[in-house]
Amino acid sequence: MIKEIIVVEGKDDTAAIKRAVDADTIETNGSAIGDEVLRRIALASERRGVIIFTDPDHAGERIRKIVARHAPGCKHAFLPQEKALYKGDIGIENASPEAIRQALSELRTETADDAGEITWEDLMEAGLIVHPDASNRRLRIGKLLGIGYANGKQFYKRCTSFRISKAEFMAALRQMEEELEA
């Protein structure tokens, strides 16, 4: 049984989580998160902890930000888009139990002080921003770091708020470069 309560978008996501692990969930009912749901999430965060596990798409990212703002200190699970894709639909409900367990084994915890080691210049030098293939490179390295895909500004925020170390970043960058050369 997972101690924390997993925040998902809907009933199908809850069903997918329950196929993979023994856990309780709170459903946001999509991006129209009501005050009552946010209060339940904040209470869950105080009492048991919360894992935010939303779809790897724009709407899921929006929900993740809203929940994290109302319940600081949450853990985050990220699922790569290709593991959540079925017939053009992206969602946690499409992921295999193995993919869900993998994402839940690689949780990241956001910190309030944004004191990570990665700098904006590191991202520029790595070709993750201001580069013709920056979007694809962020997708690849985000997967390796377990922080998901994000635009440049959000990627930087994730690196700092999840305290990605310089060593961890450089190792993922080397692995990405080796994969691109192969």
Score class of each variant (00 low, 15 high):
residue 16 A to S: 10
residue 17 I to H: 09
residue 34 G to E: 04
residue 179 E to S: 07
residue 17 I to M: 10
residue 23 A to K: 13
residue 95 A to W: 08
residue 66 I to Q: 07
residue 62 R to L: 12
residue 43 L to H: 12
residue 121 E to V: 10
residue 107 L to I: 00
residue 160 T to L: 02
residue 103 A to Q: 00
residue 135 S to V: 12
residue 167 A to G: 03
residue 110 E to N: 02
residue 121 E to A: 09
residue 9 E to V: 08
residue 129 I to E: 00
residue 170 M to H: 01
residue 131 H to Y: 09
residue 156 Y to L: 14
residue 54 T to D: 05
residue 154 Q to F: 14
residue 168 E to G: 00
residue 67 V to P: 06
residue 2 I to N: 09
residue 153 K to A: 11
residue 61 E to C: 07
residue 63 I to N: 10
residue 32 A to W: 02
residue 166 K to L: 04
residue 99 A to C: 10
residue 165 S to A: 00
residue 22 D to L: 13
residue 79 L to R: 09
residue 39 R to S: 11
residue 45 S to V: 02
residue 135 S to N: 13
residue 51 I to A: 01
residue 69 R to S: 02
residue 69 R to M: 05
residue 130 V to E: 10
residue 152 G to W: 10
residue 124 M to G: 09
residue 77 A to E: 02
residue 140 R to A: 07
residue 25 T to W: 05
residue 18 K to V: 12
residue 100 I to A: 11
residue 1 M to R: 14
residue 50 V to L: 01
residue 10 G to M: 01
residue 35 D to Y: 04
residue 149 Y to S: 01
residue 176 M to V: 03
residue 135 S to C: 07
residue 84 A to W: 09
residue 32 A to N: 14
residue 39 R to T: 11
residue 73 G to V: 05
residue 93 E to F: 02
residue 167 A to L: 03
residue 72 P to W: 06
residue 95 A to C: 10
residue 20 A to E: 13
residue 101 R to D: 08
residue 3 K to M: 12
residue 175 Q to R: 01
residue 23 A to I: 08
residue 171 A to G: 00
residue 60 G to T: 03
residue 21 V to H: 12
residue 153 K to W: 08
residue 23 A to Y: 11
residue 12 D to G: 05
residue 107 L to Y: 07
residue 129 I to M: 00
residue 7 V to K: 13
residue 48 R to Y: 12
residue 181 E to N: 15
residue 171 A to T: 01
residue 171 A to K: 01
residue 117 E to D: 11
residue 110 E to V: 15
residue 157 K to M: 00
residue 20 A to V: 13
residue 162 F to M: 05
residue 180 L to P: 01
residue 14 T to R: 15
residue 96 S to M: 05
residue 56 P to Y: 03
residue 152 G to N: 13
residue 74 C to N: 04
residue 5 I to Q: 01
residue 72 P to I: 03
residue 142 G to A: 07
residue 58 H to D: 00
residue 56 P to F: 07
residue 147 I to K: 02
residue 60 G to A: 02
residue 135 S to W: 10
residue 140 R to S: 12
residue 67 V to K: 07
residue 129 I to C: 00
residue 4 E to K: 11
residue 122 D to T: 05
residue 50 V to C: 06
residue 165 S to R: 03
residue 132 P to T: 00
residue 132 P to E: 04
residue 118 I to T: 04
residue 97 P to S: 10
residue 166 K to Q: 07
residue 155 F to P: 05
residue 130 V to M: 05
residue 52 I to H: 06
residue 48 R to E: 12
residue 129 I to K: 03
residue 29 N to K: 11
residue 21 V to P: 14
residue 15 A to S: 10
residue 26 I to M: 12
residue 139 L to Y: 06
residue 43 L to R: 15
residue 59 A to R: 06
residue 179 E to N: 13
residue 65 K to E: 13
residue 151 N to H: 15
residue 97 P to E: 07
residue 58 H to R: 12
residue 116 G to V: 06
residue 8 V to N: 11
residue 135 S to Q: 14
residue 54 T to L: 01
residue 31 S to G: 15
residue 79 L to S: 10
residue 52 I to E: 03
residue 135 S to P: 03
residue 8 V to D: 06
residue 64 R to I: 03
residue 140 R to Y: 06
residue 128 L to M: 09
residue 108 R to C: 08
residue 123 L to G: 07
